[in-house]
Write a protein that binds this DNA or RNA. Structure first.
Lengths: 252, 252
DNA sequence: TAATTTTTGTGCGCTAGCGCACTTAAGAAC
DNA sequence: GTTCTTAAGTGCGCTAGCGCACAAAAATTA
């Protein structure tokens, strides 16, 4: 349970910062409620805030013409939404939808960039996080092509649980289908199979995970790969985020 | 023909830099021959050089266990290889293979980072490029899931031609299959269909593109989307890469 | 010229997921 | 209760791509 040990009520990414930096950064943020099915951004829009979820789940979804949406990533309190504005482009290539209600810290893009400019620890952390997302995206691109629905569903449920911190997930088959880019009946079939294996049970928008270990076995290795990638680059002890200097080490 | 107007013998990305910056940067590079089927990096290895192809094509390929390789991107003289080291992580999540012989500028990672630290125009350019690659990767992740092989093959051939600057591509069906993550016979079938439509012809490792416009129609919209993304962020006139300041504007 | 290797083509049965249409069941509202 | 709405299940024919095996043709080597 890679993200479960984190304390509720905070953002794990920001928790990796030294206290001083974190406190200063959070001071520039406001708290925003994430209401279920809110569309935070549509594809192509200008990003005017960067978000750090504390509770709740946001899915990043890419749409290509004549095809359904596809969830590219789930963002919970282990991550951030739109940190890539530090790359200098404030457009989002995909939309962001709240899939579990909760709340998040958010900061105006300009303020965010200002903070990042003047805080090397924060900068380093976010660059690392962007690299992790990039690596996981490579994995997803392969996974989408090669892996059958049942394993992809298992992966998604695990990712959902990691971010909701609950054994009972509030999500319908219809929504899962939208995230996976398949028909709802496809999810019915795959979920039925997982239920018959006593890994999960569900009814009308509630999915209960009974056997997390078994679900991992039923999922593709991509789930573990993603968790490993995150842990490798964003685990607290090894991160060694530094506070100084901010002059010579302007970017890297 | 989005990349064709570029002069041979240079890297288009670096061409977007002001003369002064470009000359200084290239001065720190060495020229390296790209030999067909060279594996420049394997997945997970430490990146000790960043490459700027001048001629030739390199494919970035992700491997997941029990499945074939999958080409994630083609890199020619419109791009760069491993620029993401500026994110602070010098590992590569995928391997890089030379698919068309040629040559490239390359620079040691440490030197590269040093240059990027002290050259805001270069930094801005590379961040933009990374964003473009990221956006295209989102597109690819969807494309892999939704689009049939024939359209994906058409897209790949167009991307190949853009980077080889020739109408005759040197690539076997076997290699195309490896890049697309499918069986060779799948490519035989799809390529046969494109040939019957008089869009291409081929024999024993040579693919000739007869009708580029038709091939665009036969490809998925993802090809055009990728080209547009590149043009939007990396077109010469609009880029406005600046030289100063390098103090206040340390990162963004 | 003959043998070998590389590249491309064909056939066949199989499976995952599709579109479409319809059914069942559980809550919610009346 | 009864009706209505939302969520989940079933059936059917279809297609893309799979694995496997084998055939044909072009290029290379002997």
């Amino acid at each position: 349970m890679p993200f479960k040990q984190a304390s509720i009520g905070s953002n794990q990414l920001l928790n990796l910062l030294p206290d001083k930096n974190r406190i200063q950064f959070i001071d520039s943020c406001e708290v925003l409620a994430l209401n279920l099915h809110d569309v935070i951004e549509v594809a192509g829009s200008v990003i005017d805030h960067v978000y750090f979820p504390i509770e709740g789940i946001i899915s990043l979804e890419k749409k290509i013409p004549d095809n359904p949406y596809l969830a590219i990533a789930l963002i919970g309190n282990e991550g951030a939404l739109f940190p890539h504005v530090i790359l200098g482009e404030d457009l989002t290539p995909c939309r962001a939808v709240v899939q579990n209600a909760g709340f998040a810290l958010r900061i105006a893009t300009a303020d965010f960039i200002h903070q990042v400019e003047h805080d090397s620890a924060l900068r380093q952390l976010l660059k690392r996080y962007i690299f992790v997302i990039y690596s996981q995206l490579l994995q997803t691109a392969s996974c989408n092509l090669f892996h059958v629905l049942e394993t992809r569903l298992a992966k998604l449920l695990l990712a959902f649980q990691d971010r909701s911190q609950l054994d009972e997930l509030h999500v319908t088959q219809e929504l899962l289908a939208q995230m996976l880019g398949v028909r709802r009946v496809g999810v019915t079939k795959a979920a039925g199979s997982l239920q018959r294996q006593n890994l999960i049970s569900y009814s009308r928008g509630n999915v209960i995970i009974h056997n997390r270990k078994g679900l991992k076995t039923a999922s593709c290795l991509c789930y573990l790969a993603d968790v490993d990638t995150y842990a490798q680059f964003l685990k607290a002890p090894e991160t060694n985020l530094t506070n100084e200097p901010d002059v010579d080490e302007v970017f890297v």
